[in-house]
């Protein structure tokens, strides 16, 4: 694959070949080393490592569990997924993503920005220290989890490409590899999967690009090697295995919105007051993956998934019933 690297940009961000190779070696060594991670908490000691679970990640900033709610077991978070490119059943992604190759990887940056082109993932990630963020994840299907992601603010990455004043939105695209993603054989959605954000949403510090969870590299079923995490929006906005990021002037089309515009909005902010046409969004079933887990799982859903204080101002003056 030809990977263009515009000469006028990011000089400090280009990884010399040797350094890149050495870094790979270190990552490999880490992956093969003891799997118990310092500070990874119960994720490291008590859970089975998923078959394709990645290596340990170097985390610069380790956030406390700001959510203050019990974390979901890693086993549950990596075996109960919606990733239709690998099948529509919850256990399909873990079962069917073994053939998926998340490296080498590159991402195309396009549209209304001073710097565009195709960049190797390593070069994209290099300047960003990884942080751990413990976020609630609320699925539009009315279940939720609490997951420790490893990533960095999406805005930090976007700014490097100097979006122009025409960049009102950011559009994302998932990789389209029918040979490695058996779910693509079924026209459930208009493949490839697409998502989008208004630029101010994308620049919000809570929006992150994740490369890992529970201290490890993202497993394939969770969107390896690069995915979006937007804790105040329904899970389907968190697009996985991103290969393209485009700055656009007009609101981009998004996969679920195109499939059922009356059911899945462009904004898709978690909102207990606005029901899905076919089911209630007032409450959710919290999946912890521990114990028998039969009783007391249902909790009230909060506006913006509990992040209203941080993000509500983004939507001031908007009719959230109409712009759901």
């Amino acid at each position: 694959m030809l990977i263009r690297r515009p000469p006028d940009i990011l000089p400090g961000e280009i990884t010399p070949e040797g350094v890149h190779r050495r870094r790979r070696a270190i990552l490999k060594a880490l992956a093969l080393g003891p799997l118990a991670l310092a500070g990874c908490g119960r994720g490291a000691e008590s859970q089975a490592v998923p078959a394709d679970g990645g290596g340990a990640l170097e985390i610069a900033k380790r956030g406390a569990n700001v959510v203050g709610e019990p974390m979901t077991d890693m086993d549950a978070a990596t075996r109960y997924n919606n990733y239709y490119e690998f099948g529509t059943a919850k256990d399909d992604p873990a079962k069917n993503s073994g053939r998926f190759r998340p490296e080498p990887w590159s991402v195309e940056i396009a549209g209304e920005a001073e710097i565009t082109g195709r960049f190797a993932l390593e070069d994209l990630l290099k300047p960003h220290p990884l942080e751990e963020r413990v976020y609630r994840m609320r699925c539009v299907e009315a279940w939720s989890m609490v997951i420790p992601w490893v990533g960095f603010p999406l805005g930090d990455l976007l700014k490097r490409f100097r979006p122009t004043s025409k960049a009102k939105y950011v559009a994302f695209t998932t990789v389209n590899r029918p040979g490695e993603m058996p779910g693509l054989a079924y026209p459930v959605l208009d493949w490839p999967y697409t998502e989008g954000l208004r630029i101010d949403e994308a620049m919000h510090p809570l929006a992150i690009l994740a490369v890992g969870l529970y201290g490890r590299t993202l497993p394939n079923q969770n969107g390896a090697p690069l995915r979006l995490v937007l804790p105040w929006k329904y899970g389907f906005k968190g697009i996985k295995s991103i290969v393209r990021i485009a700055f656009t002037e007009r609101q981009p089309a998004t996969a679920w919105n195109r499939a059922a515009p009356d059911e899945y909005g462009f904004y898709a902010n978690v909102n207990p007051a606005v029901d899905h046409p076919r089911w209630s969004q007032a409450t959710e079933r919290r999946i912890t993956g521990t114990g028998f887990g039969l009783f007391g799982n249902r909790i009230a859903t909060r506006p913006f998934n509990g992040y209203a204080e941080q993000v509500a101002s983004l939507y001031a003056g908007m009719d959230l019933r109409r712009d759901f």
Binding site: D73, A76, R79, K90, W143, R285, I287, F292, G293, L294
Partner: peptide, 15 residues
Amino acid sequence: NAAQGTLGPDPVAQL
């Protein structure tokens, strides 16, 4: 299965 905890991450949905 419910008593054994072998209904997966979301046992209620399974039931």
